[in-house]
Design a protein around this nucleic acid. Structure first.
Lengths: 236, 236
DNA sequence: CGATTGCTTGATACCTCTCAACCCAGGTGG
DNA sequence: CCACCTGGGTTGAGAGGTATCAAGCAATCG
């Protein structure tokens, strides 16, 4: 997907403070980098969430949407018996929590300590009344998320545990001086719930990949991809 | 999701004929019903596809998008070894094939004999230049599809075969004089590829549901839901 | 009719889950 | 400083659910 979000100076609509009592409000703003993509930083609705804190819950009234400044946020759904499916992880610059139905359709939680900026969200009428630039940005956002969800569908529906873990590592790998390295902000449980597996299967699969000399687990959360091409080829 | 698409009289942009040689062009228009939702019927880009015909392929240049007039269309992806994941079925009134990257990200095929209307698709610049009404319609479309994909993710990632089949039946059931009945346009293979299962597992699960007196298979494609509430409760 | 196609059913294999033990690093308190 | 505890991660044994392979059945179509 090659869509570029276009910066609009009136994209930012200043936020009401979010709902939960979980957040810490900061007087200074966070990392300025994402502002380059999304326009001027809003006045100050910058909040900090510590690890595993809920940012909002599924079914809550959707008063704000958010942009990640630093850290990683998970977006997930729960079944009544506690089973969890993580639909996406969002990192710096990513938006989350945009809703058209007036209620959040997911729960959002901090994977690690996070800083986010919140923006006031209008009701369903937003999409009739806002300006074209905002609409086209929202559309690009929605289409990108849709494309990601659709790839994820294929992964969950038709790929083996080994293929899923390989895809996950390739997704998270970044090129560093000594090759591709995936530095994971999330626990094995998070990975499992993202990939539709159990924690044990994720762990065993990683061990297997290490035995096969495709990866090296420097630490549990720091994984060197010894052979990134082989990992990519698993999902050709 | 309670979003209503708003009709705009200039929503329809007349189409170039689609690309493949699979379609049959009709001089008359199809069922008029969907026109009520999407504005005046376009001049005549109405095409008919027989069962299992490809409407477009993943990777093809996306020159048109489509609305189903009658029949059912499946939207799917393939892995190199032939595994298939059906992302969605689209019925009368549904749009499909809207792309922002210039290429189709799916293959679209006729589940049964289908009539569709095609609309010319602009390139990526569409979303900057079109009018607000169109943009908000596209946004609503994208958000609806996103919500559907996300529910599907939860189903594929965390639900058992029994739960998946039950959810599928509930989705397709319609209330009739003698209770809820699901009339299926698609084969067991289609259902399996939609639910991330095999054809045999789908068949066995349906048989089990019949033994449990939750459904009755009048024919393979005509299923009465004897106890719709119980089926719904499986996914509470 | 015989062939074909879609569906069902059976036997078995295998992949992933479940349950349990263990390991290890980090934090705490004596 | 070290024993202890804790939480995350790994590993093992066995169970279970779904896939695979194969046969049988029923409706449809030449």
């Amino acid at each position: 997907m090659s869509v570029q979000l276009v910066v609009s100076s009136d994209f930012s609509i200043f936020a009401t403070p979010p709902l939960s009592g979980n957040e810490t409000w900061l007087s200074g703003a966070g990392d300025a980098e994402p502002a380059k993509r999304f326009g001027p930083r809003p006045a100050d609705p910058v909040a900090h969430f510590t690890q595993d804190r809920e940012i909002y819950g599924e079914g809550d009234t959707a008063k704000s949407y958010f942009m990640v400044v630093s850290g990683v946020v998970r977006i997930c759904k729960f079944l009544s018996d506690g089973r969890r499916q993580i639909e996406a992880f969002h990192g710096p610059g990513d938006l989350f929590g945009i809703e058209i139905g007036g209620k959040y359709s997911f729960t959002a939680e901090a994977v690690c300590d996070c800083t986010v900026i919140s923006y006031r969200q209008q009701g369903p009428e937003t999409f009739q009344t806002q300006d074209k630039i905002l609409l086209s940005q929202l559309l690009a956002y929605a289409m990108q998320n849709l494309a990601r969800a659709q790839e994820h569908l294929l992964l969950l529906g038709r790929r083996s545990a080994m293929e899923r873990v390989a895809a996950f590592l390739v997704d998270w790998a970044e090129d560093t001086p000594d090759g591709a390295v995936a530095t994971l902000a999330m626990s094995r449980q998070d990975i499992a719930d993202y990939l539709g597996l159990t924690i044990e299967t994720v762990s065993r699969t990683l061990s297997q990949l290490e035995r096969d000399a495709l990866i090296e687990l420097s630490t549990a959360r720091q994984i060197r991809l010894t052979d990134p091409d082989a990992l990519r080829d698993m999902n050709a």
